[in-house]
Design a protein around this nucleic acid. Sequence first.
DNA 1: CGACACCTTGAGTGAACTCAACGTATGTGG
DNA 2: CCACATACGTTGAGTTCACTCAAGGTGTCG
Lengths: 219, 219
Amino acid sequence: MLNSLSRDDDVSSLHALKPCPDAPWTHQRSISARTGIPLARSGAPLTFRLRQGCVALFRELSDNRRQILDVFGPGWVVSGECVDLGKCRAIAVCPVRIEFIDPFQNRKAITDATRRMLIRAQAHCLLLGRKTATERVASALLDLADQFSRQGHGGRSSFLLYLSRSELADWLGLTHETVSRCLSRFKRERLIAFTQPELITIRDRQALRALAAGAIPAT
Amino acid sequence: MLNSLSRDDDVSSLHALKPCPDAPWTHQRSISARTGIPLARSGAPLTFRLRQGCVALFRELSDNRRQILDVFGPGWVVSGECVDLGKCRAIAVCPVRIEFIDPFQNRKAITDATRRMLIRAQAHCLLLGRKTATERVASALLDLADQFSRQGHGGRSSFLLYLSRSELADWLGLTHETVSRCLSRFKRERLIAFTQPELITIRDRQALRALAAGAIPAT
DNA sequence: CGACACCTTGAGTGAACTCAACGTATGTGG
DNA sequence: CCACATACGTTGAGTTCACTCAAGGTGTCG
């Protein structure tokens, strides 16, 4: 009965991004999970608005090390103008609906999104450079809850964690084992709850926020 | 005889930022080393163009952990519009000349700078999340050489490393001891040279670039 | 049913950290 | 002028947090 919530993964890995057919900006397009989303066409940057789903922006090092730069939910405008086109790629983390838009008619949307992305990137630098694994995972959960949670009933809020443990790890500069251990610990300590690994409930937002901000855990 | 190159430090630490007197945007202002630079006045974001010197943008965690988000050389436009005003601060890393500019008359300069800063922040996320200490220090040296080196004579280029070891560490998500060890190793391996700790000569840019890109070191 | 991806957990390792000592340069006050 | 304090840099010794490696469980798909 959770089918409507479950991720519609396909088996292709991040490394085998499917090419995406041409996309003139007209109307909405659907893109399946784990599929690359083009950020440019014949050298010119493309811009799209995310209508539904979750998109990740990432860069790679030569030897398979990968860093997810940011994770976007519905409403975000993502543009090839604000990434290093040669090095950065976008991927649909789940089935996604996007709408390519004309950059010339949407200047303000693009500059606004650029500013928001910069501020998020700066916060993420602080996370990657100075936070512990525990703090990183707590920060990520709060961020994703903000972007993806449906109505929190009774202080709690549940959300679909579109990202796999490995993707979370690549976002947070950790390994998937470390992410899994942190999530298990949070669950044990009743800060969160989950039975399926991809449906998370925030049980103690306050405590998570304290952790995310770098407070020393009570033990 | 290197006086003209040496840093004009004062003893105040980063933690005791001197307040900066009001700054209406008219003409150039000088700011002494280790002094804070205002990013807003009465809530409204300020914007300045860096004429001379080196400015760092940073954020802090509650318990003194600090992350330098970016380091800017002459020519950069830095704006309170593209940071989280409540959490982010700017500091002069050496004696600096800046010019506050009218944001309404300089839209394009600001949006261009925002885009460049975002792309740099994304590259820095990759560095912080996925690179080793060695790779981080190599990347930083190349970045700073690009921004600050005077004419490279004979393939080499020297530059003033305005940042202290601790500031480098706070930029690269390391400790000052680790930075020092990396620099010493690079010196031992003849990738760089220095007699004073703050005047660096790049001796093997090629090798540094390979390291910075994540190539496995030869040894 | 096997193949595969993903998640979890344990055991052992290692890269970067902490702590500590020492050297140098600069500044201050007696 | 020297004694002292302070900041910064370097290097060594020991520690630790997150990593690697490994094993086993679950769910999905052909």
